[in-house]
Simulated scan of single mutants.
Amino acid sequence: MLVEVEKVRTFPWSPFPIAQIQTPIGRTAVPWHGPPDTPLGQYDVEWTIDTDVTWGLTAKPAAESAPAILAGGHCVILRGRLRLTPDGAGVLDLSGSLIMLDFAEPPPPETDGTWIQIYVPHGDVHLYPYEL
């Protein structure tokens, strides 16, 4: 996903710099795995989620059928279309960016192909810049 890095700051409580990003589907701040002195501007990034998702608690059906990135206080809210994998994991399609999800327990089979929202603590969402 192409993001606009608006600001990158380091904090004593975070092992990684925190990037304030803007995307076509929303704005948030998350750990940045690029250099702390990253120049502001546009970057292609890969999203990772470093926590298990629990259906009904941190993952729920979405009220809207449109991708979104929302700031939710202590968490990042990602809305996308869910695809289940045969091994009980999932893939969240976030406006063309695919994010692997590990579920604590497999979600109901009828959630495959539906719009969901996941709620992830800021520290468990990471962005990795890459060059095309």
Rank of each mutant, 00 (worst) to 15 (best):
D50S: 13
I116E: 00
L101H: 03
V3G: 07
H74W: 09
L40C: 03
R81Y: 09
Y43A: 07
V30W: 08
L94S: 07
F11P: 01
R81P: 06
I18E: 10
E131W: 09
V5I: 14
D44E: 13
T114N: 04
D124L: 09
V8T: 05
R79F: 02
P17K: 08
E131I: 13
D102E: 14
G41I: 06
L40E: 08
V45W: 08
E4F: 05
L132F: 04
L132H: 13
Y128I: 09
L78H: 04
V120H: 00
H33A: 06
H33E: 11
E131H: 04
P107A: 03
V5W: 01
P106R: 03
Q22Y: 07
P36R: 11
G96P: 12
D37R: 12
L57Y: 12
K60I: 09
L70N: 11
A62D: 10
P17L: 02
D102T: 15
E46M: 13
D124G: 00
V76H: 03
P24V: 10
L98R: 15
P121R: 01
V120L: 01
A104S: 14
D93W: 05
G113V: 05
H74P: 09
Y130E: 01
G90A: 11
I18V: 13
P15L: 00
P36D: 12
P61N: 02
A89F: 03
A71N: 14
G34P: 11
I18N: 00
K60P: 02
V53M: 09
P107Y: 02
F103Q: 02
L127A: 07
Y130W: 14
P86Y: 06
G123M: 01
I77G: 00
D87Y: 01
D50T: 10
I118T: 14
D44V: 10
S95D: 15
Y119D: 03
T114K: 14
A59K: 02
L78G: 06
R9S: 15
A68S: 11
D50C: 08
T23D: 12
G72S: 11
T28R: 05
A68P: 05
I21V: 15
G90R: 13
D112W: 10
V53H: 02
A71S: 15
W55P: 15
P39W: 11
T23M: 08
V45N: 08
A59E: 02
I25S: 06
P129N: 00
L57Q: 12
T85E: 13
A89D: 15
P129Q: 02
E110K: 07
E4I: 08
Y119E: 04
R81T: 15
D87E: 08
P31N: 11
A66G: 08
I18H: 00
W47E: 06
V125M: 03
L92A: 06
G41R: 03
E105V: 06
V53L: 08
A89L: 03
P17A: 09
P39S: 09
A71I: 00
A68I: 12
P67H: 12
L70F: 04
P121V: 00
P24E: 10
P108C: 01
W13C: 01
H126N: 12
D44S: 13
S65D: 13
S65E: 15
P86F: 05
V91P: 11
L70S: 09
I21P: 05
S14K: 10
R83P: 05
